[in-house]
């Protein structure tokens, strides 16, 4: 894997001009040699890239001196790590018990319909990725939905469309 990677000169030059790879190198340098560094490095790398593509995994494996299989094993084990790109906004429908009892399933169903995707899918416009999350600990506001950093409590299926439109409009305005 490492050898194949080195032959690919076009990626190397692309990387040189991409400051995200510089950030990744800094992160790796900060943790290299420390015990138990892999998970914190993956967290920060995912923050930089939005996901963990294979070339990033290779760089981390080499930088921390752990087998690539182990890097991949850890990524696939933990649900918050992803090797697939995500939509601009991640929608999380809390499926904790309190939210479930208060009707989170109906909210999720409405989101699926409105976005035309299944759970873990990304909408055609690349704007939203629909996720189901574990208890976010805001049980007093059940059912709860999150979009990016925004939290929407006491959700009802009827409110879904309007909330999605808010993001779509903001996006259109930003483009215009």
């Amino acid at each position: 894997m490492g050898a194949a990677n080195k032959q690919c000169c076009c990626c190397q030059s692309m990387r040189a001009s991409d400051e995200r790879y510089q950030k990744l190198a800094d992160i790796i340098a900060r943790y290299a040699g420390q015990p138990g560094a892999l998970i914190p490095v993956l967290h920060q790398a995912q923050e930089v890239f939005g996901y963990l593509p294979q070339d990033v995994q290779v760089l981390i494996a080499e930088g921390l001196d752990v087998p690539l299989s182990e890097v991949d094993g850890v990524i696939t084990f933990y649900s918050l790590f992803t090797s697939q790109p995500k939509g601009k906004y991640t929608i999380g429908v809390c499926m904790g018990t309190a939210c479930y009892v208060k009707g989170a399933a109906a909210v999720l169903e409405e989101l699926k319909q409105q976005l035309g995707v299944d759970v873990n899918g990304t909408s055609a416009d690349g704007l939203f990725t629909l996720n189901v999350t574990r208890c976010v600990g805001a049980c007093g506001l059940a059912p709860v939905m999150t979009i990016g950093e925004d939290v929407y409590g006491r959700m009802k299926p009827e409110a879904v469309r309007e909330i999605l439109d808010k993001y779509i409009q903001a996006e259109q305005q930003a483009k215009a």
């Binding site: 138990g36 998970i39 914190p40 993956l42 967290h43 084990f77 933990y78 649900s79 918050l80 790590f81 574990r134």
Partner: peptide, 8 residues
Amino acid sequence: IRVGAGAF
């Protein structure tokens, strides 16, 4: 601090 990554 060690931050988990979503595994119950």
